[in-house]
Amino acid sequence: MSGSDIDPPDPAAEYVLGTLDAAEADAAQARIAADPGFAAAVRAWEGRLTPLTLLVTPVPPPEALWDRVQASCALDVPAPANENRPGWWRGTAIASLAVAAGLAAFIVLHPAPAPVFAVLTPIGTTAAVLVAFGGPHGGIVVRPSGAIHIATDRDLELWSLAAGALRPEPLGVIPPSGREILPIAAGTQLLVSLEPKGGSPTGQPTGPVMFGGTLQRANE
């Protein structure tokens, strides 16, 4: 470091850092367009500091945002020809969802006609809840793996927690044979708690949450 007490201002660096006020930032943006040397200095600082964005947890944007982007770009991307499904999953290339859970990752290898999938669990454990798209009624199938053993006076209950929601919604007890739920939006968390036989008496989870994961599109 230099011995000088005063470091000269570096507007390219401070523009990239984000600390310029509105007028200074406007001036920097104008200079980027007009001054190739300044633009190169900005790019160099972007290269230096962008790794800091790795400190930020990714957040999926709202489901509808892609439609907005397409509309703004005057894109008219047609849905795939075999796409004939309602609402929230329209426009996706592969009509499959995966739960990326702490305990189980569900991978759709082929979406149709009979999805092939694998459940990846941490080595040494086998307990998992399988979540698969394409139930007999077009919904999402949620089924415990055969390896989940619970007391006879207990049930596993399924909950959905929409992105940003504070309280989960009950989706019912999961019988060993599994159950089919209506399609719900990607980005929604699915949680499974251990409850008294018949399900939570309060409408909110009362036992420990044993499994959890966020619905994601398999092709993203």
Partner: peptide, 8 residues
């Protein structure tokens, strides 16, 4: 990339 951009 949308999740990373949106996170930021």
């Amino acid at each position: 990339w949308s999740s990373r951009l949106h996170g930021v």
